[in-house]
């Protein structure tokens, strides 16, 4: 799958390119907004950094959105609420703040792709051993029996299940699931993780990675 990466920082772009390739994405990297707009190969998804040398990343988003409905994920060092809102208003499909890990980006890309093109992508139902996640119906089955989950618990599980085994930081989970990005306590997260652990039993384990965040390990 082709990914257009618009990022002016070389180390980030290189590492991200390498990381994404490992997950089967074919990355075309451009440094400037002009190059991004000039790129006429059909990309399946576009990652746009907001701080570009020649123009504002938001303008790139707006222009791309005007041309078509390619999924756009903004990657930015600016985590202000205003920037997020503007980015999403302008037509970006998601907003990921730096710093992020490879798997977090992959998870967000998959989620966006699924949301944007539900028919084309992977089946909406995901089987992970004993756990079956039905994203369209927002239902989770454990050993065939439906699990009672609150909306947030479902969002959390389905987000972590995008990349089983990957570590997600608390901040990234808060950003993706609660749609909030604030410096401060992330205790709500611990509670939901606690509840999910109880409900999933030994079918899957939500491991705490000390100092970082959580990962879902399916058995």
């Amino acid at each position: 799958m082709r990914v257009l990466l618009v990022e002016d920082d070389e180390p980030i772009a290189e590492s991200l390119t390498r990381g994404l390739s490992r997950y089967g994405f074919e990355v075309r990297w451009v440094r400037t907004g002009a190059e991004a707009l000039a790129d006429d190969d059909e990309a399946a998804i576009v990652l746009v950094d907001l701080g570009l040398p020649d123009m504002d990343g938001l303008d790139v988003c707006r222009e791309l959105r005007a041309r078509g409905d390619v999924p756009i994920i903004v990657i930015s060092a600016r985590s202000d609420e205003v920037d997020r809102v503007v980015g999403l208003e302008i037509g970006a499909d998601d907003y990921v703040t730096k710093p992020f890990g490879v798997r977090e980006v992959v998870a967000r890309m998959r989620a966006v792709l699924r949301r944007v093109q539900p028919s084309v992508k992977e089946p909406a139902q995901q089987e992970h051993g004993r756990v079956r996640i039905d994203r369209r119906g927002r239902r989770v089955h454990l050993d065939g029996a439906e699990l009672e989950l609150t909306p947030k618990e479902f969002d959390l599980l389905s987000f972590l299940a995008e990349e089983p085994g990957a570590v997600f930081t608390r901040e990234q989970i808060m950003e993706a699931v609660w749609d909030e990005n604030w410096f401060g306590p992330t205790k709500t997260l611990d509670v939901h993780v606690g509840v999910l652990r109880r409900k999933l039993g030994d079918a899957a384990s939500l491991e705490t990675v000390r100092g970082v965040g959580f990962r879902l390990v399916l058995t």
Partner: peptide
């Protein structure tokens, strides 16, 4: 730089 570092470590 923190992002670059994080990505490299992931790799």
């Amino acid at each position: 730089p923190l992002t670059a570092l994080r990505l490299s470590l992931d790799n």
